[in-house]
Write a protein that binds this DNA or RNA. Sequence first.
DNA 1: TGCGTTGTCGCAACCGAGTTGCGTTAATTT
DNA 2: AAATTAACGCAACTCGGTTGCGACAACGCA
Lengths: 126, 126
Amino acid sequence: MGVLRKTKHLEHVLQAFRQSSDALSAGMLLDALANEINKSTVYRMLQKLEDDGVIHSFLTMDQIRFYALCKGCSSGRHVDTHAHFQCTSCKRVSCVSEEIVLPTPGRSRITSAQVLLTGQCESCLS
Amino acid sequence: MGVLRKTKHLEHVLQAFRQSSDALSAGMLLDALANEINKSTVYRMLQKLEDDGVIHSFLTMDQIRFYALCKGCSSGRHVDTHAHFQCTSCKRVSCVSEEIVLPTPGRSRITSAQVLLTGQCESCLS
DNA sequence: TGCGTTGTCGCAACCGAGTTGCGTTAATTT
DNA sequence: AAATTAACGCAACTCGGTTGCGACAACGCA
């Protein structure tokens, strides 16, 4: 239930997200802020930011967690019904704006959904 | 390009899939066939079965790869546009029969998609 | 400005899913 | 039955992510 202190590292990470239109993984952040910030610090920060509803996360095909800034999420509930797209060539990951219509199988109660599209992005196709 | 030999282990694994209506992970198979079959053998077998179009795989929220028998897949192309559902209580994973309508973002070319729903299944709700 | 509280950091050790190299075993081919 | 070659077991490894702990720094308050 921490109050999220304004530290130098936090500013760097948030800035990285704002500057990038893509989603980022912990590894990418570590590369970007190489030996300025510790591995576990990054993971802990991402975890906390997600808990607080600032970013949301999802997995790609190769089992790596990516994070992106939330736009319509609160700390309680994430609006996760938008899809994500990963290019198989350049590996970049982005959010897809269109909403998706999801089925409700049987009598179960769906609380969250995750949609990942893969293929080639516009710039890798040309 | 192996020819997939008929071994005792292969039979056990295929039987496990046929007996279960759910999708299975490598870990679950290892538990089921405890100390009868080696870890790397299981992983190699699953990999090969997927290459040969016998099973298909996908990831759950906790980064674990699950496998299920293919019904309309060939070795070349997997019909992966159906969703999967994982219950947050009992952790069981199943295939959702309904097809899903997917968006095509921008001018990119989508080659595969993965949809994971999470929530509570019918039996855990009651 | 000084001080106590408490969240954050760095480090190092750890965890667990999945992979790999290699020598051996066993299914298939002849 | 012998040769071929896929499948196996083992042990060591990779890598994304976690954890315990002592040190440090941001914040609140006087």
